[in-house]
Every structure is written in structure tokens, then in C-alpha cells.
Design a protein around this nucleic acid. Structure first.
Length: 354
DNA sequence: TTGTGTTTTATTGCCTCC
DNA sequence: GGAGGCAATAAAACACAA
């Protein structure tokens, strides 16, 4: 086991200067970055090797795990972290790549001996003077964005397959002049972005469906109101007509054979004719009593029918006050259809078929 | 110029699979 | 147990308004 306490001065990562990083590095001359595997700060938070190296190089610790002014413990415990410090990665950076120009902030190509391990070894305090430290740290690698061409290339590759097999990763890294790790990270982040976009799209689709349904519902409510007012209007007419009829009958002889005769089916079908409409002798129809039998043909199937059913039931109570008690046995379909002068087929209004 | 919000690059820990 | 994926997150880079 290898433990070492490493003080971290209170320096903001953003405002850090290369010199301060170098200073900190020099404060720990015995630090061997090749042995850095695992970091624990005083608050027992873990810091990976790359993060630790980053804190040295750039004056801060990514992830906010290390508290400034605190210290970390170095151990050689192995953690799963494909750190960019891996010297092997630098071999994948092709100097002849057409996509040169973007490197990871922890890419150490063109630095010293060209490998991460050697890069760090070159800072052995015993073998290097202060000037050399400062020379390196005054021009730190910054986090660099990929070039437009690199991104375009990666995007095309992502379109083909958003998963990255090891061979493909290495191939892409070579072609782009990046580290395989960078390619893997790019795909990882790209998948995350894709997923976010997908979620947004799904949300929009759901929202659109909801809006359509809502609009349909509002239309139905409007139509319902329209029909209700029409029913009310016709009910009023019926009441007036009833009044007139009763007044007329009271002035006539008690028994008028034509009116008291039972209504025949043929007569009813005449009354059901839309052309006749509600102006027909409704009293006669309801006097028959078993109207549901008469209007059996009005029955239809499907949810639409159910809608109409409720619709009819909804208006019946308001009609009770206008009609004789016998009407309570009447099929709501029949009542509505008859009152509106519509046959069963005519009930298939356009607005029902959303 | 500076403050602020967004995007991109990168790290970490956890999880699953082999 | 190692490799790779993912969610969460940090921080640099960038965009843009005041």
C-alpha cells in the first residue's frame, strides 16, 4: 500500500494559474503519478486518478470532491476508471490524422516523451529544475472542443450505429486523431443527448395527442349545449301545442273518435318521418304508451350509441314537466330523434365521428 | 467587459454482463 | 473481477444580453 498526504491549496479551478499548479506539484516532489490510483479526501470522498492529476494540472478537482485547503490520501487501490492518463491512449493519437487540432485536456502528446507515464516521470523533482516545471505548466492543455469536421465524422458514425464496439472505437480514434477514450466519451454523451431529445419528442407527441383530444372534447361539449338548447326550444313548442290542444278538446265533445283511436304503426311511421318533424301530433304517439317498442329501429350499436344514450337521459328530466307521465317509459333515443325530426341514420352527425 | 445561461467534454460511482 | 454502459455531475468553452 502506498499512502501519501497531498495538500490542496484553496484555488478556484476556473481562476487557477499554471504557476499555481506547478507550485503544488512541486510541493509534492515524491508524488509518482503512475502510482496514483485512488484518492480520498478528508471527508472520505473518493477521487479518481485522472481527477487528481487534473487538480494538479489545472488547479482544481473535477467533480468537486476534493475540498480546497484539504488533503487527499493516495493509495494504489485499483478503481475502474479508464483514465486518460493511460499511457497507451497517447499512441492512438495519429499525428497524420486529417483531424489534427483537437486534443483532450489530458492528452499529453507533444509533451516531453509522448506518453503519459514518461510525461509525469519527466517531472521528477530530483532531475528537473523549477524552470522546466514552469515551462510545462505555463501552457497547460485546456479542454478543447472537437473540430467541426471531427464532430461531423462522429455524427455520421453515430447515425450508423450509436453503440461503439472496441474495434470501431480504435478505428475512429485513429481516423480522428483522438484517444479512444475520447471517442467513447463522445458516444456516451451523444447517446445521453439523443435520449434527452427522444424524451422531449415523446413528450411533445403526447402533448399533441392530449391537445387533440381536448379539442375534440370541447367540440363535443359545444355540440351538446347546442343540442340541449334545441331540445329546450322544441320542448317549449310542445308545451304550447299541448296547451292549445287541451283547450280545444275542452270545447269539443268528450269523445272525438278520430283522436281516441289507438295509433297504428303506419300512422307512427308517418309521424316519424323527418319531414313531419316535431310538428306532428305528439300526444297521439305518447298515448300509445309502449313507445320503446315503436322506436326499436332506433337502436344502434357502438360507443356512439352509448353517448347518445347518456345524452338522451340527460334531457329527459327536463322534459318531464312538459309531458304526460307515460313518457318515462320512452326510449331516450326515440324522444330525441323524434323531437329533432331525425331518423336513426340521421343521428350520425358529423361531429360524432371524431 | 461582465454576468449569466447553455453546450460540450470529461469524471465518477454504480450497475450489469460475461 | 474486469469491461462497458448509464446517470449524475463538474467545469471549460461558448453565446449573448446589458
Amino acid at each position: 500500500m502506498y499512502f501519501e498526504s497531498v495538500p490542496i491549496p484553496p484555488i478556484s479551478p476556473r481562476s487557477s494559474s499554471p504557476a499555481s499548479s506547478a507550485t503544488r506539484f512541486k510541493q509534492n516532489p515524491s508524488t509518482e503519478f503512475d502510482n496514483i490510483k485512488f484518492f480520498i479526501n478528508p471527508r472520505l470522498k473518493k477521487i479518481g486518478p485522472a481527477m487528481a492529476a487534473r487538480s494538479y494540472l489545472y488547479g482544481g478537482v473535477s467533480g468537486g470532491e476534493a475540498e480546497s485547503g484539504g488533503s487527499v490520501l493516495l493509495t494504489n487501490k485499483r478503481v475502474h476508471c479508464s483514465s486518460s492518463l493511460n499511457p497507451v491512449d497517447s499512441f492512438f493519437v495519429s499525428r497524420s490524422s486529417p483531424f489534427q487540432g483537437s486534443r483532450s485536456m489530458v492528452s499529453f502528446e507533444d509533451r516531453g516523451n509522448g506518453s503519459g507515464g514518461q510525461f509525469f516521470q519527466s517531472f521528477d523533482h530530483e532531475d528537473n529544475g523549477d524552470d522546466e516545471y514552469d515551462e510545462y505548466f505555463q501552457q497547460p492543455e485546456k479542454k478543447r472542443r472537437l473540430t467541426v469536421d471531427q464532430v461531423r465524422f462522429l455524427e455520421k458514425s453515430f447515425e450508423l450505429d450509436n453503440k461503439l464496439e472496441p474495434d470501431r472505437k480504435i478505428q475512429l480514434a485513429k481516423e480522428l486523431g483522438l484517444q479512444p477514450r475520447q471517442v467513447a466519451i463522445w458516444f456516451q454523451n451523444r447517446r445521453a443527448r439523443w435520449k434527452t431529445k427522444q424524451l422531449e419528442k415523446d413528450y411533445d407527441d403526447l402533448q399533441e395527442s392530449y391537445n387533440k383530444l381536448k379539442a375534440n372534447y370541447e367540440n363535443l361539449v359545444k355540440e351538446k349545449e347546442k343540442l340541449k338548447s334545441k331540445v329546450d326550444e322544441l320542448s317549449d313548442k310542445l308545451m304550447i301545442q299541448e296547451k292549445g290542444t287541451s283547450e280545444a278538446s275542452s270545447t269539443k265533445s268528450p269523445c272525438e273518435p278520430q283522436l281516441c283511436e289507438p295509433v297504428l304503426e303506419e300512422d307512427l311511421s308517418k309521424n316519424m318521418n323527418p319531414a313531419c318533424g316535431p310538428e306532428g301530433d305528439l300526444n297521439v304517439v305518447f298515448e300509445r304508451g309502449d313507445s320503446s317498442y315503436v322506436f326499436e329501429q332506433e337502436q344502434s350499436d357502438g360507443s356512439l350509441d352509448e353517448e347518445n344514450d347518456n345524452f338522451g337521459k340527460m334531457f329527459l328530466p327536463s322534459m318531464d314537466c312538459y309531458t304526460s307521465p307515460k313518457i318515462e317509459n320512452v326510449d331516450p333515443h326515440a324522444v330525441n330523434s323524434y323531437y329533432l325530426g331525425l331518423s336513426g341514420d340521421d343521428q350520425a352527425f358529423g361531429f360524432w365521428s371524431y
